[in-house]
Design a protein around this nucleic acid. Structure first.
Length: 775
DNA sequence: GAGCACTGC
């Protein structure tokens, strides 16, 4: 059977998530999953062409050239829209007679007409009347539908021409790529321009660093974070007639906040003294069938439709009927479009799932027909690299057995193996996958509010995550899912993944609420209420930052901090830097920008490369610590005018990370100007920072991170000043292995040991100064 | 003495 050559290709650096090439009129050619070594694709064959459906649309990488309207156009000529074509599309009724239609180029209309039959075949189209009627009757609709139902693209289009829909429709997405590619798809389906291409564009999107909306945008896809930012400026969302909240089952902190705000808004609770002049229609879309919790959440009266069907008894029925009249929430279920996936569990538990995965990969490769790629879910870089090496070794041995095949001129039929973390669960869709191997674990972050410490631990996944992973095998054809655990192991898993809001630091969430006028956060409508001590801990932290006043209302400082795309702590550092006595705002913006993106310094594997790198970076490293090192790095990069990419390669710095740094830096500078923290045109001193400048910068850091300070003990270890907790300088820090009087650090991470990341050396009396100024 | 799941503003 081993007649195929198994070539192995590993892609290490790619843009976040997937790389997709789509040519007009053609199907997807090739996808690689890789992000800083989180995912590797090992190719055993030519990737399959696959159909492009909604879930694929959601994970397409956006074009990097989204800036220029002309570049975003299709390759067809745009000039001379052509009266003839307009006439020929007159069969489409009134649309064709509108002014907009006159100038829409024919190829857009052709594409629209071509897509219409495909749209109508989507399962959601069976529910179009029901959805419209529900929203006529009620302001809230809970819509559950599995993947492939078409809900994300179709629902906004269903609502567009409803009588009540006089303004814009917002559709939120947890991820940027999803917002962008869904908008593209819907624009195509509507025969409309996209975003800022043309003032008549009816579809647009809004994500950080990229706003593609126009004056006539009626359907707007945006990230959850973006909607929250908009809600700060306009709490009643007056520009929208409807808000569609998609992917609610993922339960990000942001979606939980949005749901709470929407609940208040629908219930008519005043928002900062403002009220809407017309009702807001809300559609909650979720993949899992946890409808009742969502319906109950939005329906205080307890008069949801379920009461009607649940009651048998006559008296109950009468009650239920009465309540149903006043029911405020509709619900709707849509079938998905998913091929069957055969489940295979292990007969007995395994300790070494890397080895089990290896065996299964080759068992599938030998036994199962082609085509059909294999997606393997692992926990992290270490296990991925371990398995990659094993597969490579084994595949090499196989080559030796079938040497002749290598030189055959015919295209080799092979199989692709993708090794991934849970990035492939939601963020990236890999076409061609028919086999899934699921290790049943993932690394999850747990915030321990008592210690203010985050832990990253390998934990069993939930049943819903396991089902999600399994589903990845049935996107294009019937598939198989091999679970590296037993059936009883599955039965023991939690039903669903604990919502993020129950396991994270709440200070940013609470500051967002306070800034939006929710003063009583303990009584905020949470879909899942965080424990009281976690809420109190966050409130106390905000008080220490002076973001809240003694009475718990938001302060001037707090209002400023809430506007920044930063944690409250980093926001506080920024505000501190703008004080005249500190006068180091531009420097601090550079540092914070670098702290806001993925690691700027590339992680080298071999000892040799590590030494090479530290030699090359010597001109950037500062003995004061990571913060000043980042400042120098950003400044040198910004100064480099000729070839920034080459500069990065020379210094073993990630070019992609630095591009992000520059985006964040620009945004923060703009926001600081708007808040009058920064004078327009203020220039930065690019000289190597003096001792005084360094002291000012670190004093700002200390203002935000007082709780994250530690002092050197006589035995050479560090213990936190607040809590006497043992902490070690992280190996990634420039201060790793160094002994200084005291340190301030950004992050406290537990992975087998408590580590301090983002570390600078400070003097103990600087720390006392800050503590005194707060008390 | 030796490490980094995933999003997002």
């Amino acid at each position: 059977m081993s007649k195929e050559k198994a070539s192995v290709e590993v892609s290490k650096e790619s843009k976040s998530g997937s790389q997709v090439e789509l040519k007009q009129g053609q199907k997807r050619k090739r996808v690689e999953v890789a992000k800083k070594g989180d995912g590797k694709s090992i190719k055993f064959d030519e990737p399959n062409a696959s159909r492009v459906d909604e879930a694929d649309v959601k994970t397409e990488a956006p074009s990097r050239r989204s800036g220029s309207p002309s570049q975003r156009q299709s390759s067809k000529p745009l000039s001379n829209p052509g009266r003839k074509d307009n006439k020929s599309s007159g069969r489409n009724g009134k649309l064709a007679n509108t002014k907009h239609q006159q100038s829409i180029p024919p190829h857009l209309l052709r594409k629209r007409d071509e897509l219409l039959p495909k749209r109508k075949a989507l399962p959601i189209w069976l529910k179009v009347d029901e959805i419209k009627a529900s929203l006529k009757k009620n302001n809230v609709l809970v819509l559950t539908g599995e993947t492939g139902s078409g809900k994300s693209t179709q629902v906004p289009q269903f609502l567009l021409n409803e009588k009540w829909c006089t303004r814009c429709i917002a559709i939120t997405q947890p991820r940027r790529v999803a917002a962008i590619s869904l908008a593209r798809r819907v624009a195509e389906e509507m025969g409309s321009y996209m975003g800022s291409q043309s003032p008549m564009a009816k579809v647009g999107y809004s994500v950080r660093f990229d706003n593609a909306t126009g004056p006539n945008t009626k359907i707007k896809f945006l990230t959850e974070g973006m909607l929250l930012q908009e809600m700060l400026r306009d709490p009643v969302m007056s520009q929208y007639s409807a808000v569609v909240v998609d992917e609610v089952h993922e339960r990000s902190v942001n979606v939980d906040l949005i749901l709470g705000f929407l609940k208040n808004l629908v219930a008519g609770v005043e928002q900062s003294g403002k009220k809407r002049d017309q009702p807001l229609k809300v559609v909650i879309m979720s993949a899992t069938a946890d409808v009742e919790a969502l319906v109950d959440f939005f329906d205080d009266s307890g008069a949801s439709e379920k009461t009607l069907s649940a009651s048998n008894d006559d008296a109950d029925m009468k009650d239920a009927l009465e309540q149903a009249v006043t029911s405020r929430v509709s619900k709707c279920f849509v079938e998905g479009r998913q091929f069957p996936v055969e489940m295979i569990h292990l007969p007995s538990p395994t300790q070494d799932w890397v080895e089990s995965a290896l065996k299964l990969i080759f068992q599938i490769h030998y036994k199962e027909p082609l085509p059909g790629d294999i997606l393997v879910f692992l926990t992290g870089q270490d296990t991925i690299e371990g398995l990659e090496k094993l597969v490579n070794d084994y595949a090499e041995g196989m080559d030796n057995e079938v040497p002749k095949r290598i030189f055959e001129p015919t295209p080799v039929r092979t199989r692709k193996v993708i090794l991934a973390t849970n990035i492939a669960e939601t963020s990236v869709t890999v076409p061609g996958v028919r086999y899934v191997i699921d290790c049943g674990k993932s690394k999850t972050k747990q915030f321990r509010s008592r210690l203010g410490l985050e832990s990253l631990l390998v934990k069993p996944i939930s049943k819903s995550a396991a089902i999600q992973r399994k589903g990845r095998a049935g996107r294009e054809a019937p598939g198989q899912c091999y679970r590296l655990y037993t059936e009883s192991g599955y039965a023991e898993m939690e039903e669903r993944t604990t919502p993020e809001i129950l396991r994270c630091d709440l200070s940013q969430a609470i500051l967002t609420m306070k800034a939006r006028g929710v003063n009583d956060v303990l009584n905020f409508p949470f879909l899942d209420r965080p424990p009281r001590d976690a809420l109190e801990k966050a409130l106390l932290h905000l008080l220490h930052l002076q973001a809240l006043t003694e009475t718990g209302t938001i302060s001037e400082i707090g209002l400023k901090i809430a506007k920044f795309p930063l944690t409250p702590t980093l926001g506080r550092v920024l505000v501190e830097a703008a004080k005249p006595e500190r006068d180091c705002l531009l420097d601090v913006i550079d540092i914070i920008s670098a702290l806001s993106v993925e690691n700027v310094f590339l992680n080298l594997v071999t000892e040799e490369r590590k030494e090479e790198a530290s030699e090359a970076r010597r001109e950037l490293y500062r003995r004061e610590g990571d913060h000043m090192t980042l400042l120098v790095t950003v400044q040198r990069y910004a100064e480099e005018q000729s070839d920034r990419k080459a500069w990065c390669i020379r210094h073993f710095v990630s070019h992609r990370a630095m591009q992000n740094v520059m985006n964040v830096r620009k945004q923060l500078r703009q926001q600081c100007q708007q808040l009058k923290l920064l004078a327009p045109g203020e220039e930065q001193d690019m000289k190597a920072p003096s001792e005084e400048r360094t002291k000012n910068v670190l004093a700002c850091m200390l203002r935000g991170f007082v709780a994250n300070t530690a002092r050197l003990m006589p035995d050479g270890s560090y213990k936190t000043l607040n809590g006497n907790q043992l902490v070690a300088i992280h190996p990634g820090s420039v201060l790793f292995g160094k002994k200084v009087e005291a340190i301030v650090f950004n992050e406290f991470v537990f992975t087998g040991k408590a580590w301090a990341r983002g570390v600078s050396a400070v003097q103990l009396d600087w720390v006392s100064e800050v503590i005194d100024s707060i008390l």
